[in-house]
Design a protein around this nucleic acid. Sequence first.
RNA 1: CGGAGUGUAGCGCAGUCUGGUAGCGCACCUGGUUUGGGACCAGGGGGUCGAAGGUUCGAGUCCUUUCACUCCGACCA
Length: 571
Amino acid sequence: MRMTKMLVPTSKEIPNEATLPSHIYLIRGGFIQSVGGSGLYNFLPLGKRVLDRIAKVVKEELDMAGCQEVSLSFVTPSSLWEESGRFEKYGKELLRFKDRKENDFVLGPTHEEMMVNLVRQSVRSYKELPLNLYQINLKFRDEIRPRFGLMRGREFVMKDGYSFHISHEDMKREFDLMEETYKKIFTRLGLAFRVVEADSGAIGGSGSKEFMVLARSGEDTIVVCESCEYGANIEAAISKPTETQSEPPQAKFAKFHTPDTKTIEALSAFFHVDPFYLIKTVAKRALYDDGVSKIVLFALRGSDTLQEVKACNAVNANDLIDVSEEELEAIGLVAGYMGPTVVVEGVSVVYDNGLRDAKALICGANEKDFHFVGISLVGVEAIFSDLRAVQEGERCNCCGGRLTYTKGIEVGHIFQLGTRYSKPLGANFLDENGKSVPMVMGTYGIGVSRLLAAIIEQHHDENGCVWSKASAPFELYILISNVKDEAQIALAESLYTAMREIGVEVLLDDRKDRFGAKMNDYELLGIPYAVVIGKKLSEGVVECIMRKGLIKEDVASDAIIDYLKVRLLSC
RNA sequence: CGGAGUGUAGCGCAGUCUGGUAGCGCACCUGGUUUGGGACCAGGGGGUCGAAGGUUCGAGUCCUUUCACUCCGACCA
């Protein structure tokens, strides 16, 4: 391809809304273009080429692992979403609309329902299983706050795969295979990443893992162990239970007058007791389907912090929202003096695992200016769950190593779904005994368009993009320094032809611009190798540049073809 | 949805306080010079000033309403 023929609107200006390197360089390099609506982008020729290269890697590895590509209709009838129960549950992110006959439709944000529908219409027998079907297609999510360009757009390209099995064991086998396949994909794309334990969120199911590209600008906080392979999203991370060196308070059970001590800090100071021995009681309103809601008290050690996603999962709610002091008062709870041991009608209590069989505790008496001392939970029958947020510096549950926070970009997520969709949607098969049972499912996603952004977040310098080999829009850039010099043109043209003949994707910069402008564009576009044909040609020398590190090397002009063959075709 | 801000040429912005011919830089078009780090000279094209209503002889500017976008937060496969 020739630069003079290609639509590559590069720009010196940094677009106003762009703050991340990936967003800035993708727009400045003419890879993508904002549509004006928030979170909507056009892919220009260069961006489309990168997208295709990434999709090709994804497709090759999946096909190698035995998956089959399909393409599902983007517009989905709402009835399928009603069958699965997600029409209600998914919320405003789901774009709903009617056709001319007033029938309801949604734009697919993910396609479990559609794929289950496809399979239930065509698969009857255990002999036809397992199956792993995927597509690489547009998705639409009406994000509350789209940002960071391709990182969190409303419309985006995702690979979504779904597997169907006769047993949980077989699904687990496929899940592990997908984890290995994803590792191959992200490694081929040249990314540094980490596989972490994750929360399953709205999709449902259990045992999910996220693939996080490590980058300072990542939107997700992940907890990683410095000593072993353990990694988890902050929403799912666990650590060794917290401990304390300080002495437990010695007290028999009693109600104690504690004026003006509404916070853990104040209480800790009042009794001169480590917050470890205090019970923090957090009230939330848990929201359920059909507008149902209830108040829940979450009790954990004063030294711990509530992790809301865990709390939400513990009570199986759709969402948790804060409760005002007035609301609490209305149902008989005293803000600042709440405790899990005195509860009013209709309020449930969930204890953190860290409080199981704990003793010598202090908690609110649910009465203004009073706390209980000498509380013991030994042998107490109650709901216990993991509620606490893992803090930096805590000890790894696997190896005892130090845990630290880091930021990651979620580029892949795999779930063990089970029968969450196959059961309500009636995706059944006949087993060896002729019995009808629901298929066991797994689901596997990769954010294909997000990967463009993730690659640049990890691979860029102050001059622009540095594409990895597998993602680059072209392999080689031939830069003609002066298009008025016929010798330069002649060599460039013959090199261009020779490279194309051996299957190298080449971009020839034959524009009339000055050297500096073209060089800056080359650096901005980030193509792995360039040959600069310039004034040293009169001495029989051209310059070869490796974009990564901008390493330059002079090469004899009559040896350049062989030189490039070695460089480009060896790996 | 809460807080803050911005809407003027393709992009980045000035002009708004104090009403009086629509501006600048980049980009673009024509001609010429230039060619190793974003050149120069000369000429040129391009605007419902986010939208609606109001005040006024006159509104980009003042008043009212509204829409969109950006940032922080809440939220989020």
